[in-house]
Amino acid sequence: MAENTLVVNEKVQLEYDGDNKVFLGFWIYIMTDCVLFASLFAVYAVLHGNTFGGPSASEIFNLPYVMIETLLLLTSSFTCGLAMISLQNRQAAKVRLFFIITFILGLSFLVMEIKEFHHLTTIGDSWTRSGFLSSYFTLVGTHGLHISVGLIWMAVMIFRIKKTKLTHANIRRMKMLALFWHFLDVIWIFIFSLVYLFGVLNK
C-alpha cells in the first residue's frame, strides 16, 4: 500500500483526467503555432534579400538594443517558471508577485519592440518599403502580437487570483499561460538568431 497511500477520490481523479485532456489540447495548439511561425520564417528566408533599393538587415538592426530585449524576455520566462513553482506550493501571493514581475518584463520587451518599429516607420523604412521589410515586420510583429495576447491573459489572471484565489480552473489556466509564455521565448531564440544575428552577419 506504500505507493498509493494517498488515494484520490473519484472527483479529483476526474478533474485530473480532465486537466490532462486540456493540457494535451493546449500543447497541440502550441504545435500548430510552431508551424505558423515556421511558415513566417520560410517567407522571411525567401524574402530577406529583397530590399528593393531600401535598407538591408545589417543597416537597420541595432544588436545591443535587441540583446536587451532578449534578456528581458528570457528573464521573464524564468520568472514565469518561478510563478509555476509557487503555484505548485499553492502560495497565491507569490504567484501573483512573480506574474507581475513577468508582466513588467514582458511589457518592457513589447514597448522596446514597438519603439523600434516606430523608429523605422518614421525614417521611411516601414513595411511598405520592400519585401524584406514586409516579412521582417510581419514575422517579428506576429511574435509581438502573441506577446500582447499573453500579457492580456496574464493581466486577467493576476486580477483574478486576487479575487478568487487559486481555484482549480485558475490553476489550470495559469499552467497553460506559462506554457504559452515559455513557447514565445523559444520562438524568440530563433528570431534573435536567424533574423537579427544572421542579418548583421550578412553585410
Binding site: V43, N50, W127, S130, F132, S134, F137
Partner: peptide, 21 residues
C-alpha cells in the same frame, strides 16, 4: 494573412514590384 497584408496595408510579399515573390 500575407495576401491580406499586401492588399490592405501595402506590403510586398507577393506583389510584382517592391521585392515581392
Amino acid at each position: 494573412t500575407l495576401l491580406a497584408l499586401d492588399r490592405t496595408f501595402g506590403m510586398h510579399f507577393f506583389t510584382a514590384s517592391g521585392g515581392g515573390n
